[in-house]
């Protein structure tokens, strides 16, 4: 967490009646961070955001957002945060410019309406009725309404869902621009590539608990975890006995000429393999790839491991 704390959550619990939704969530987000809340449907992402934005009360725990408790916080606090919900509401009869101007008029110190419209890529649509916008343009209007009040902290609920690849990149650039200016961004998403390229840190929420929290590259021990080397055993390599690479901590597998080696020391293992193939007269390993587990691999493994854990056991085993 680089800057001073903007969001501090500890021991957050929430039950709807007898049904517990959050079982002790801890989150810390610093100023200027882009922080993602990732998790399967029903894990508690939206509930957490609702509590942080003051739309839902909590059952237990402490929550501080911009130094205040969101439950019962006043308009002065509201003027400092921006919210981009999934459901924008309808302003069908109004133009883009009218809606953005109207929202600007609700804040004490709004951004210039023209620059917000321009920056969200709606410049050509300023005088268009919002009912005639495409799904992606509507989503960008949502974002425009969320930032026009010049917030210090923006909550985005699935900001790029339904956008085409170009519009997604535009939205990412916009979010980066906000963060570069010192705005803190908290978003929920289902897209792992979004987390990977956009976010400084991510918290993975599984069944109402933070299973892991950290930089996307470190999640699940990815940076130091096992890599996988794969290649085709062709030509002189076909059927040849593989070298003993066990001493560098690798495990072997082969099927139909495809060799797959899991190793904690990919460089050392590769050196052994290259010497082996050179000895056999092949100066290449056809189809060679060396991969680390993607965030998606790690994430899916975490979900699978969580599903295998009985619900009564609150602690999640470290998986990767």
């Amino acid at each position: 967490m680089p800057g001073p704390e903007v969001i501090g959550v500890s021991g957050l619990r929430k039950s709807y009646g007898a049904v517990p939704v959050l079982h002790g969530v801890d989150l810390h987000v610093g100023r200027g961070e882009i922080f993602a809340l990732l998790g399967p449907n029903g894990a508690g992402k939206t509930t957490t955001q609702e509590i942080l934005t003051g739309f839902s009360s909590r059952s237990a725990g402490s929550v501080s957002v911009l130094g205040e408790d969101p439950a019962g916080a006043g308009s002065r606090w509201r003027a400092r945060i921006g919210i981009v919900p999934q459901d924008m509401g309808s302003f069908d009869q109004l133009t883009v410019k009218e809606v953005v101007s109207h929202f600007a008029s609700l804040y004490p110190d709004p951004l210039p309406v023209g620059s917000v419209i321009e920056r969200t890529g709606l410049g050509g649509k300023a005088n268009e009725r919002t009912s005639r916008l495409s799904g992606g343009q509507r989503r960008r209007l949502d974002i425009a309404l969320g930032i026009v009040g010049r917030p210090e902290l923006v909550f985005l609920d699935e900001p790029t869902t339904g956008l085409d690849p170009q519009a997604r990149r535009g939205t990412w650039d916009l979010i980066r621009a906000l963060a570069a200016d010192g705005t803190t961004v908290m978003l929920t998403t289902h897209y792992l590539d979004e987390v990977e390229v956009l976010c400084d840190r991510v918290a993975i929420l599984l069944r109402g608990k933070v299973a892991e929290q950290g930089a996307p590259a470190d999640i699940g021990g990815r940076a130091h975890g096992e890599a996988v080397i794969e290649f085709q055993a062709e030509g002189p390599l076909r059927g040849a006995e593989l070298p003993t690479v066990q001493q560098v901590g690798a495990s072997l597998g082969r099927a139909e000429g495809q060799v797959r080696i899991g190793t904690a020391a990919p460089a050392a293992t590769l050196r052994v393999l290259l010497e082996w193939s050179a000895r056999l007269g092949s100066f290449d390993l056809p189809g060679l790839t060396v991969t680390r587990p993607t965030l998606e691999d790690v994430y899916l493994r975490m979900i699978a491991a969580d599903a295998a854990t009985p619900a009564s056991e609150p602690e999640l085993e470290h998986v990767a």
Binding site: D173, A180, D181
Partner: peptide, 29 residues
């Protein structure tokens, strides 16, 4: 991974924020 991109300024700088300015009045809104 936030740094390094060519981000167009939004004239957004938080330092330019004026915290004393209070919200528009109920009547004006």
């Amino acid at each position: 991974m936030t740094g390094g991109t060519e981000t167009t300024a939004l004239e957004y700088r938080s330092e330019s924020r004026t915290p004393e300015r209070w919200a528009p009045s109920i009547g004006r809104v």
